[in-house]
Design a protein around this nucleic acid. Structure first.
Lengths: 331, 331
DNA sequence: ACGGTCGTTGAAACCGGTTACATGACTGAG
DNA sequence: CTCAGTCATGTAACCGGTTTCAACGACCGT
C-alpha cells in the first residue's frame, strides 16, 4: 500500500486539500468540527506529510548541508555533535557530505546540495580560495570554516595564531631553545597558520624552529621523531600541529627512552579526549562549540537575513599537562 | 538574482523544458546541435538542478536517514564514517537526526524523514519493540541496528553474547574467580545482552558475577570501582560493558594503587582508539564496518528489492592487551 | 506520389504539498 | 430589509523538475 497523501486525507474527511493543509499547519481559520474530521482522517490513515513536497512549495527545507573534509575521529564527531545540538534545537536537520579522500573536488558535493538544504556549512582547509569561489553555489547562504576564501561570506575561523603563540611562549618559559615543529599537510590552511605563527613567535626571541613534515596522522608523528633520532639532532621541545601527531611522537620518544617532559617537552593541538588521558599538553579548541557557533551563525543569517556577521574568530586555549609540565606527574 | 530554473535554460536555448531535462539526464534521443545549445545555456546560467524538485517527481531522494542515539564520541564518528563510506560510494547522502537526550521520542524524528529519504537506518538500543513498531514509518525501507524489535525488518546486530563470552573465558583462563561486571544503562539492549551472556558464561564454570550499575559514562566506571573499594569487596577481574567505563575504572584502580592486571584484570567493550593507547583489553567491534554493512544492507534492499535479508550478525573479536595480560607491559 | 518508420521535439500531466483568491453563508449595523 | 464584513471553505496556480504521448518532418521503399 502506497503512503497516504494529503488528497487521501481530504477525500476521507470530505473536505478540500486546502483545509487539510490548514489543519496540519495549525492555521486558525478552520471550524472545530472540520478540524476534528480531518484529524481523525489523518490518524486513521496514518498520514505523515511528505517533507520533500512541502519543501518544494515552501522553498524551505529545514535542513543544513554539512561538507567536511576527512577528519580524524574525535574531531569529526565533536564538530558534528556541536552542529547538531544547535541545528536540532532550532528545528533543522543535518545533511552530511564528507569530501572523503580530500582530493575529490568539492564541486560535485556542493552542487548536489541545491534544493536539498537551506544553507551550507563548509569546512575546507585544503581548498584554494578561487576553487572555492567557483564551487560555492551562489544562491545558498553559507558559512565557511577555516578556509582561505574571504569573499564576503560569513565565516568562522579558529585562531591558530593565538594557539601556536601560546605554545611557543610556554616552551620559552620552560627554557627550551631547541625547538621542533611537526607540521600538518601541505595545503592545509590551519597547518600553515600554526607553523608560521609558531616559528614567528619563537623567532622574536631569537629561537629558531626546526620544521618537519607531517600529515596529521599519528604515524607521521612517529616518523618525524624517528627521523630526528636517526639524525642525532639535538632538541628539547616538540610542537605537533595536531594531537594525533603529538601522540605518535610521544610513543616514539618513549620507545627511544627519552624522558618527557624532562628531556623533551611535547605539545599538540586540538585537545581531543585522548590528549587528556595521555597527559598531553595541547591547545584546546572546543570543537563542539566551534560547530555549534557555525550553525548558529548560519541560522542567524538565514532567519534574520539582515546583518551578515562577517568573520568570527574562535579562540583556543593552552592546556598544560604532563608532557610539558615538569611539576606534574606524567600520565 | 534568483537561481536559474530549468525553464530559464529552456528559454535561453530556445527549446522546451523536456529537451533540457533529457540532456541533463543523458537521454540519447537529442540531436547534437540541440544538445550543444542546451549545454551552453546551462553553462552560461550556471544552472544547477534542484534536487528537491527532482526527488519529488522521481519519488527518489538519493538520501538515507540516519537516526542514532546519543553516542559517545568515537563510536559515533566511526559508525557515521562507515555509513558514509558505503553510502557515498553508491551515490547517496546521509541525513542525520540524532535522538539526543535519549529520552526524546523517536517518533518525531522518524516522521520528519518521510519524503526526505529513501531509506532509514535506525539504531535504538533503548527503545521497546512496540514503541518502535509504532514509530516506524510503514512506507520506508529500514534497517534496524541493535534493537529489540524483530518485526520482519531487516536488521543488523552486534553479537554481544559472543563478545561477552570471550571475555568471560579469558578471565577464567587467567584463573580469576571473583569477577565484577559494570553494566550499561538499564534499558539498553546491548548492555543487557552483555551482562546476561557474561554472567551465564561464568556461571557455567561455577563462578558468580558481582553486578554493578553503570551508564556507559567514564565517571560511572570510576564510581563503580570506588564503591567496590569502599565496601572492601574482594575482586580480581572487572568487565565493563563498554570501554568508556573501563577507562574510568582503570583510572580509579590506579589511583587506589591497585596493580592492573596483576591484582585485578580489566576489560571493556568496543575497542575505541583510546583503548589501544591505554592498553585496555577489550572486545573489538569494528564500528565503521558495522555502519558500512548496515548501509550496504539497506541499499541492497532498496535497489534489489527482491530478497530481503533478515537478520545479520556482526561478530566482535577479543583483543587482549596490557590490562589483562600478565606478560604484556602495561601501557 | 504515397504510406510507413524513425528520430526529434514540445505540450501537458504529474509528484505532494502551500497559498492567493474566489465563493458563499452568516452576522450585525443602519 | 439591505449591505458590508466576517468566517469557513474550495478552486486553482504554483514550486521545479520528469515523463508520457502525440505531432511533426525527414527519409525510406515501392
Amino acid at each position: 500500500m502506497a503512503e497516504a497523501t494529503i488528497r487521501d486525507v481530504a477525500r476521507r474527511a470530505q473536505v478540500s486539500i486546502a483545509s487539510v493543509s490548514r489543519v496540519l499547519n495549525g492555521a486558525s481559520n478552520v471550524s472545530e468540527p472540520t478540524r476534528c474530521r480531518i484529524e481523525d482522517a489523518v490518524r486513521e490513515l496514518g498520514y505523515v506529510p511528505h517533507a520533500g513536497a512541502r519543501s518544494l512549495s515552501m522553498a524551505r527545507t529545514n535542513a543544513l548541508g554539512v561538507v567536511l573534509p576527512d577528519l580524524h575521529g574525535e574531531f569529526f564527531s565533536e564538530i558534528v555533535r556541536g552542529m547538531d545540538r544547535e541545528a536540532s534545537a532550532r528545528g533543522y536537520l543535518l545533511l552530511l557530505s564528507p569530501l572523503h579522500g580530500e582530493s575529490e573536488r568539492p564541486a560535485v558535493a556542493l552542487r548536489a546540495m541545491r534544493g536539498r538544504v537551506d544553507g551550507l556549512l563548509l569546512m575546507a582547509p585544503q581548498i584554494e580560495a578561487d576553487a572555492l569561489a567557483l564551487a560555492l553555489p551562489s544562491g545558498l547562504p553559507s558559512v565557511l570554516m577555516n578556509t582561505r576564501a574571504d569573499m564576503g561570506n560569513a565565516s568562522i575561523h579558529l585562531d591558530n595564531e593565538a594557539g601556536a603563540r601560546a605554545v611557543a611562549d610556554h616552551f620559552l618559559a620552560l627554557g627550551r631553545r631547541h625547538v621542533v615543529h611537526i607540521a600538518g599537510p601541505d595545503g592545509n590552511i590551519d597547518a600553515q597558520e600554526r607553523a608560521a605563527a609558531f616559528a614567528r613567535a619563537l623567532a622574536v626571541h631569537g629561537v629558531e624552529t626546526r620544521l618537519l613534515p607531517g600529515d596529521f596522522s599519528e604515524s607521521s608523528g612517529v616518523a618525524a621523531v624517528e627521523r630526528l633520532l636517526a639524525e642525532g639532532a639535538r632538541f628539547d621541545a616538540i610542537f605537533a600541529a595536531n594531537d594525533n601527531m603529538a601522540i605518535g611522537a610521544l610513543g616514539a620518544l618513549r620507545r627511544a627512552g627519552i624522558a618527557v617532559p624532562d628531556t623533551v617537552a611535547l605539545a599538540g593541538f586540538d585537545d581531543i579526549p585522548l590528549a587528556r588521558h595521555l597527559g598531553l599538553t595541547t591547545v584546546r579548541v572546543r570543537i563542539a562549540e566551534l560547530g555549534q557557533r557555525a550553525v548558529s551563525l548560519l541560522l542567524d543569517l538565514l532567519e534574520g537575513g539582515d546583518a551578515p556577521p562577517g568573520r568570527i574568530d574562535h579562540a583556543p586555549e593552552l592546556v598544560v599537562r604532563a608532557t610539558s609540565d615538569p611539576a606534574g606527574a606524567e600520565g
